[in-house]
Amino acid sequence: MNRNVKDTIVEGITGVSVLLIIFIIVSILAVTIVGGWPNLNWTFLSEFPKDGMTKGGIFPAIVGTAMMTIIMAVAAVPFGVITAIYLAEYASEKSVIAKTIRFAVKTLAVVPSIIFGLFGLGFFIGFIGKNMDGLLNGGELKWGQPNILWASFTMALLTLPVVIVSVEEAIRTIPREMREASLALGATKWQTIRRVVLPGSVSGILTGTILAVSRGAGEVAPILFTGAAYFLSDLPRSLSDQFMSLGYHIYIMSTQSSNVDATLPIQFATTLVLLLLTFSLNAVAVTLRYRIRKRAK
């Protein structure tokens, strides 16, 4: 075949691929916005579902998602930051422990989310929760069942790699001169980390947190067995309560509803809320990360 013809074909294929991707993204956005925007109003955001979930709003799902992601962040961020400090500051690159942790973090990042859900069910509910009940409540069932705490912890495991990677990247952008300046003044390693390295890594820690929150807000599989509820007439009042979540709400509205067609506007509007939430969180994270990378140069 003529080389020029080949060239044209390759250019054509790549061009079509790009167009296809743009088309998909635009259609998702267009369909969601067209279907969801008319139903998006204050009542929808502030009311409980009504009439067998065919009417009303998604207030408890918004609150549930927010609570779950906050608890998740409180669990995942400190743990992730500590791990990142170890990897960046203490572990030697060649040490077996560091290699093992890195391997574990990479593996954790590619484990399908449903596996996290099953793990949460088996570990948090079946093992920790059940034993807590045995020790604290004389066997009465309280922690050994799905609730917002176990769901948040399960989600924290899923988002941990995101936090670790972001924070480690930020820590590594702190120039060696800064560490040397601190050490040369007689600071210990920990004083250097606490007073120089961590303050300089704040934006990385923030990026990691926001990426984790935006990922956790949208995921459904990890909370499926560990705490998400079909419908609740009240907001969660304690860590041992179940909760409603936006992602799960979309799933049940489109598969379990008594009247799927009637709930279509609700589905669209819920999807739009979830998309807006995760998009804006991601936008903030990308901006922050851009600023870190600029500083690193």
Partner: peptide, 27 residues
């Protein structure tokens, strides 16, 4: 603490002048 060091590239912390100087005493 006894043997201080000044580096080739000046390396003040991204803190105020005051906090830079007070860093050593504070730690």
């Amino acid at each position: 603490k006894k043997v201080g060091m000044i580096f080739q590239k000046s390396n003040p912390f991204a803190k105020s002048v005051y906090d830079n100087i007070a860093f050593g005493p504070r730690i």
